[in-house]
Write a protein that binds this DNA or RNA. Structure first.
Lengths: 350, 350
DNA sequence: CGGAGAAATCTAAGCGCTTAGATTCTGCGA
DNA sequence: TCGCAGAATCTAAGCGCTTAGATTTCTCCG
């Protein structure tokens, strides 16, 4: 099955390859009759233009890449999806933050006519994985934390990058989401509505968005003269770390009234851990999350959290990239997307 | 930001471009010292190999494409996701069949080192949408029904295609799932456990998998000497069609004891329609679905259905494609994946 | 120390498109 | 009928890689 090329089409249609190319890309430049005979020849031969050749000749591929965390894909290759060690909701069953953002990216790419490229070759010996992706696309959307400094430097030297959840830099844009206000408002709710004063905070400071959440937490407590507790380290992609964090908290002399987690995934795992320890949520301990993923919405108790506009984040990222690719980089900066406190029942029955 | 090419790297490293290429693709063929200086030069310049050039020169892109239904993406662009006309679970909130299959595809692509390409340019004036995708990848996974006959012909002439839910043909492979047995067993459950005898069947015969489900339904009823009812037409991607189907069924003189739907999406919509008509599920009417999507699992009542191994389907599709691309086409045919009846509470409290 | 064979590197020819710029057609007014 | 502008088409030069096959450099042994 030798591949059909412009040459074959040109020959059958009795024109030059340039005309074939024009017929597909600028049909108005070609006489109607010529156009028709080219199209007929193409159809008859089953011509499919080579994306590689196009990309090379045009200098752009028309595709956008998305570089996400690895832990969503086969964290443990040989472990069947259902065989979880803990009854924490399975990330492969419920869409997580990155999945919902990705959906937004997908929608907006489709709308704007970009192809979307996910992942790529495993890191080869000498090329980091993300480079493989970067070489195939016109722009890249990456989750902060998924990119090392070195990789970012290398990629941004070639194509525009939007880094979700990071700082706005001169080489990488980001979609601005007001994480700080979200966490601030949530914390205020806990203090003012539920009159909690003894808190624990489970999370990390890995990227800018996590730092902002922590700031919001501290600010809200500060307003009420409460000293913010230290961060008990846990990572969203690693339920075990949350279980450990909760164990550590429970080992303390005084049990907190509320455990504030910086992601829903952590919060859901925390609830599991608390239950395992014989505690009731929210009666004995209140728990809150951050993100607004589906699993939290349908959990029992329904998770109180801060909902991020995930689909919008994805769409905005594509929009920024698209503008940059069209050379309108200096246009109005991306507006700040807001998050919103969602009061479920895990924070206590008011 | 002129793009850094092999030429730049070669010059800085003091070697030919061939050596640069070798350094990246077959490092064992290059002297250690040369390798090092090439890598240093590449790193210093921020070299990112062009995927287009690679693809063109190698004759393959290393990417696999997935072509799915459109209705998942922005069916109604300007309608916010939450503003549903009916309270049918929103397909943008819960992952659907295609989403779960896609996840499997994603996982297996990653595992095997393929990049995954989603969608692509909107259909341009003269190129059908799928052709745009086909030109960029080494193989294509398509949902049956998403591909017209003409498009399939054209695409299969260039690259191997796995068509999910279709017939095995000489030009397109498929992943075999035993839909017939699944629906057969489910129907048997309704007859033998719940003693239902009056059925309605809501669905379609659009692709081979739907036909197989219908066959399973008829066969099970036949065993018990029950005549299968006509199909009341409804399409999974179109809740309104299910609502109409249910209305039609309820308008009949005799109400069925059970409504068998050929997808979960239909079944969930049917439940909504029945409730709207003042009927209780399953007390007044039993309802069953097919697929095993998340929304059905967490619905109230929990949907009785046939669970397809969706992730596995996606993975198997990639595996088949991968084998074909490696020229091992004639190797053992794909095993038949089985589905499994999942008894929830929508079929009656036995 | 010379030379053979292996290893390392290089030269050069594509891969299948796009697109300036050159060339050929067309239709129309004088 | 001729000349010419504008439309249609063509020629040819890349785009940035890979990879046969040629060439040069090493390595090792007689």
């Amino acid at each position: 099955m030798r591949k059909v090329t412009v040459y074959d089409v040109a020959e059958l249609a009795g024109v030059s390859i340039a005309t074939v190319s024009f017929a597909f890309t600028r049909p108005d430049k070609v006489k109607a009759q010529t156009l028709r005979s080219v199209m007929e020849a193409a159809d008859q031969l089953g011509y499919v233009p080579s994306g590689s050749a196009r990309g090379l000749a045009r200098g752009r591929t028309g595709a956008i890449g998305i570089y996400s965390y690895d832990y969503l894909l086969d964290p443990d290759e040989d472990k069947p999806a259902t065989d979880t060690e803990t009854p924490v909701p399975d990330g492969r069953l419920f869409p997580l933050y990155a999945d919902e953002v990705q959906r937004g990216v997908q929608i907006e790419c489709r709308r704007r006519g970009y192809a979307l490229m996910l992942g790529g070759n495993r890191a080869s010996d000498h090329l980091p994985h993300v480079i493989e992706v970067a070489g195939r696309v016109d722009g890249l959307i990456a989750f902060a934390g998924a990119l090392t400094d070195n990789a970012r430097r290398q990629v941004t030297a070639r194509i525009p990058v939007v880094e979700l959840g990071g700082l706005e830099r001169d080489d990488a844009r980001t979609v601005l989401v007001d994480n700080e206000s979200g966490m601030h408002d949530l914390t205020l709710h806990l203090v003012e509505q539920h009159h909690h004063r003894r808190f624990a905070y489970v999370g990390e400071l890995g990227t800018e968005e996590f730092k902002a959440r922590r700031r919001g937490f501290e600010r809200a407590l500060g307003t009420h003269g409460i000293t913010a507790p230290e961060i008990v380290p846990a990572h969203a992609g690693d339920d075990a770390s949350t279980l450990r964090a909760v164990a550590e908290i429970l080992a303390r002399p005084e049990r907190p009234e509320a455990i504030v987690c910086d992601t829903d995934q952590s919060a859901l795992a925390a609830i599991v851990a608390l239950r395992a320890a014989g505690l009731r949520v929210p009666d004995d301990v209140a728990v809150t999350g951050f993100d607004g993923i589906l699993a939290g919405r349908i959990a029992a108790p329904v998770l109180t959290t801060v909902r991020q506009p995930m689909e919008q984040i994805g769409r905005a990222a594509v929009e920024i990239l698209s503008r940059t690719l069209d050379g309108q980089d200096a246009v109005a900066p991306a507006p700040v997307l807001t998050c919103e406190v969602f009061v479920g029942s895990s924070c206590g029955t008011h």
